[in-house]
Design a protein around this nucleic acid. Sequence first.
RNA 1: UGGGGCGUAGACAAGUGGCAAGUCACCAGAUUUUGGUUCUGGCAUUCGCAGGUUCGAAUCCUGCCGCCCCAACCA
Length: 579
Amino acid sequence: MRNDPTRKTAAAAPEAQSGAANGEPLDFIRSIVAADVAAGKHDGRVVTRFPPEPNGYLHIGHAKSICLNFGVAAEYGGRCHLRFDDTNPLKEDPHYVESIEKDVRWLGFDWGRHLYHASDYFERLYDYAVQLVQDGKAYVDSSSEEEIRRDRGTVTEPGKESPDRARSVQENLDLLERMRRGEFDDGAYVLRARIDMASPNMKMRDPLIYRVRRVPHHRTGDAWNIYPMYDFAHCFSDSIEGITHSLCTLEFENNRELYDWFLDQVHVHHPQQIEFARLNLSHTVMSKRTLLELVEKGIVRGWDDPRLPTLSGLRRRGYTPEAIRAFCDRIGVAKRDNLVDVSLLEYYIREDLNKRAKRVMAVLRPLRVVIDNYPEGQVEELEAINNPEDPEVGTRRIPFSRVLYIERDDFREDPPKKFFRLAPGREVRLKHAYFLKCEEVVRDDAGDIVELRCTYDPATKSGSATDGRKVKGTLHWVSAGSAVEAEVRLYEHLFLSANPAEAGREEGLESLLNPASLEVVRGARVEPSLATAHAGQRFQFLRHGYFCVDPDSAPGALVFNRTIGLRDSWSKIEKKQQP
RNA sequence: UGGGGCGUAGACAAGUGGCAAGUCACCAGAUUUUGGUUCUGGCAUUCGCAGGUUCGAAUCCUGCCGCCCCAACCA
């Protein structure tokens, strides 16, 4: 088996995207796995797992972990389990289970038949606990929560042993059994490991194994009155499933000694825990607690608010799984605390959508244009290319007529330097159509510009002039008679601060929120081909950015989300001119 | 200040004794019927700091400094 030449190797693994297969340097985890496989450890098998607790929605930080765990497994011919770490019925909810499964699948990963729950192992876990008690390695403690806390000591002082530490094995066994049967109130007893109250590692000072919680569990019902703690449940769950490499985040480094201790006591399969740095993204927050707070306070519209870094939020916003995976590949895996600039994520969604999004024209803030020399009542169909990056997707026809809408921002009565859009007396090109010249500005009684009187050059239908004259600007437009009205939601970073989790420690997060994170534009006009667009469809609104149809959208009441704007070098020039 | 980790450009991140990959961001230019895309060039004489070993150090040794994690019956 070990030398089986047909066994899949990293290079032969299908769909390997990173590290092992593409010649990029291996990250430290893949290096360890590669070395283990080469050395024939675990017979060369690789089994990983993604172990979320069903107490919240998945976010892009989880995506990093998912890509790592499923990625490593795929690259080394192994498998990756999806396991719900459901050991705390007080905080968990089956609703979250559904969202997690959906999000992992959406990201593009498949756990096959390997869907597990820590609660599947409750009986075996209990057996391990009994074994520990029998071996004198665990005891039932009647200390109160406060006493336990106090007697644990501090980082510089050793803790104090509980009087119950000396309880007999027989009595411990009896008490544990009665805890399980529900004879005691919550908090009356706990089962603890007997390790070392003076250990320099706080996690080793007689950690809790079971606590009494007389509440039903969403999967085991009222079968249990005690529930296992993370450190105890997690290592044994890994062991039971035959996990070879248990990848987790840095804050569990201190727990590794305990992970190893539990497994060593009962001589079972012993996976290797390896810790890596979690992802932090600039201008947003990643902690479940904070995300929950934003949702519950109504600061955002729910877990799938497009401003959130949740996978459901990113999906609704228009992000593709491919872009998120490419991003996760790029950021790497290391042990250094990090704060990845959100512009890197934005780069990957632009890169992906540039290749696949159909171009359409949409005017967000319409300004009416009347072409005086264009025949009244005439409508002609012009051909427009759907995607210059992908000629395969062909062309479509768009109506052109005497009355159009252009973007208000594309006209300046008094144009600044380097502004080469429309202005009085100036000529520009209308995308896919003719040259257009502004002849006159029409105002209402309040003095606001309500309309532009223009002329067009019929000889410029090709997009350029026959006499060789050039225009510097090309504008998008829609025909007033056939345009469809739409609502457009423009998103910006949720936080002004690059690192709100850090900056908000004292003043609180709310003062750091970006008041302009959502701008709703009503009365936008989009080209008629969009009338039948359905939720989830993505487009490039020419010269604006990438947009996708929101689930709130309905026939006759289109709603678009801006996924990300196009890079905008004009705004930079303009900004430079301002100060 | 007990223990566990980490310090390479604005942000990520390779490199593990032979004389600083790559990506994003940023800057400059070319192309362009999207001020988009694409392309070209620039961007760490220096690797937290200070000593030491060596012909040679980001990589080895010593000391110091800084940041993160651990005192939930959360995970």
